[in-house]
Amino acid sequence: MADKTEKQDMAWRAIGGLLGLVTAWGAKKAIGFAWEKTTGRKPPVDNESLEISLGEAVGYAVVMGVGMQVTQIVVARTARKRYNAWKAVKDAARDVTT
């Protein structure tokens, strides 16, 4: 039989996975929008295309990589804190009723 902490870890994995997908999608859209507003050009789709300068391709890769990673770190840490707080409240409520 599965341990109670294993069930909670599975819940966090499901929440974390879904949160990761939504965060990546949202960050990509936001960074692409910011890139377009800053440079006046759409983000490079095909970095191997010779129509895109090397500097632009590398610049976009750096901005996208750093932006995505920072976003995922902030969201994951915030979500983990909220999940742990919710779990503590839930456990405290269960202790009061038993």
Rank of each mutant, 00 (worst) to 15 (best):
T98W: 08
G17C: 07
E6S: 12
K81T: 07
R77A: 07
A57W: 04
T71I: 01
G26S: 15
M1R: 08
V22Y: 15
T97C: 06
A76Q: 10
E51C: 06
K87G: 10
V89A: 12
A14K: 07
A85V: 03
A93V: 07
G16P: 01
G20T: 02
P44C: 05
A85R: 03
G26E: 14
A57Y: 01
T39E: 09
K29R: 13
V22C: 13
F33T: 03
D46C: 05
A76S: 12
T98N: 12
K7N: 10
V63M: 12
T39R: 09
W86P: 00
L18F: 05
T38N: 13
Y83L: 00
K4V: 08
A88S: 10
K7L: 13
W25T: 06
A88D: 15
A34C: 12
V96P: 01
I52S: 03
G67R: 02
M10V: 08
V62T: 11
V63L: 13
R80Q: 04
G67K: 01
A57G: 04
D95Q: 04
A61F: 00
W86S: 05
G67T: 03
A85L: 08
K4A: 10
R80W: 00
E48N: 08
N47S: 10
V66S: 06
N84R: 11
Q8V: 13
T98S: 12
